[in-house]
Design a binder for these strands. Sequence first.
DNA 1: CAAATTGTTCATTTTTTCTTGAACAAATCC
DNA 2: GGATTTGTTCAAGAAAAAATGAACAATTTG
Lengths: 182, 182
Amino acid sequence: MPQTATKLANRSGASLGSPSGSDQLNLLEIEVIDLFVNAVKTLGFPKSVGEIYGLLFISKEALPLDTLVDRLQISKGSASQGLRLLRSLNAVTSIYVAGDRRDHFVAETQLKKLAAGFIREELEPHISSGADRIARLKQNLAEMAEATPSTDSAFYEEQIDQLERWNTKGRRLLPLIAKFLD
Amino acid sequence: MPQTATKLANRSGASLGSPSGSDQLNLLEIEVIDLFVNAVKTLGFPKSVGEIYGLLFISKEALPLDTLVDRLQISKGSASQGLRLLRSLNAVTSIYVAGDRRDHFVAETQLKKLAAGFIREELEPHISSGADRIARLKQNLAEMAEATPSTDSAFYEEQIDQLERWNTKGRRLLPLIAKFLD
DNA sequence: CAAATTGTTCATTTTTTCTTGAACAAATCC
DNA sequence: GGATTTGTTCAAGAAAAAATGAACAATTTG
């Protein structure tokens, strides 16, 4: 029995079938997805990630990968990669569905958890690598000042200190954001 | 007198001239620029913007456009566009230099101002357009529920309310960030 | 006022990022 | 165990974003 149309209960109110197979997205779904595609792009993620999260967000039931592929008309590869990213952020979780071998995915909707995931996976690492770079800068400056004493090292030092203060502020800000979004 | 080499006082400690004209970036400058290129990409801006801001940040003197072009080896177009963006964020300001017709640019280094610019130009607009979209969603839902009463409108409504709460939280968060970074 | 300087704009090219889909691995089924 | 289903990976193609540079406008200068 190949080509099983979505096993899920059909979404009620979907527009009647047009040319290609799988049931069309209804207007509301389209607009919600569009909204998430936008939001997600702002955060620096690809469109497909917004599509996946958006559809899961506006779906009452958990959806398996092939339903996402079907309904969003994206490739299996995109769906798989998008889901991996979303899971790494804890923005989707997979749930067990009795009698179905496939993973089923649900959107996490606690803003705090979403923010925490984003902070952990996307922001923290930048702050940390920033701190490393700044440390390296300080070394370079010291070496340079030794080799070429004439340099404006006072100015450079001040600027690098500035960077360090920014980095510290940034690091302290993140947990406050997480807390605020609770 | 075409092809005037940079009029600015030569950066001390720059490595001795190699093939092409304009004075090379020194190691410290390169690393600072690299750091900003990275930071700026995280925020969703192009590399050239990071290069420009980075060089201005680590330069004691204000620099005119053609010095940026020369030293960073970017096109005049990129420099012009990058500067426009940076000015719109109040991340650089131009200052008057006596006896020089050209605009000279300096990096703004107050974190609060930088953050405020970013929030105003990049985040606020998304929050606002998000609010519009959500309003439109509500309308659609109402219309849909009327046309096709069967729909899961209770679920949809809950999800849209969720979006609205997120939007509100986001809007309230922004000023707190600005305040914290003061 | 003509020539030169400074900066902007935007169509084209280049670079980067995202998506695709076929090959593969792993798990489950009969 | 062989066949099927499910999901991942990754090289290649497609799409999106950024950079280029030549044409142009606006100043300024002599």
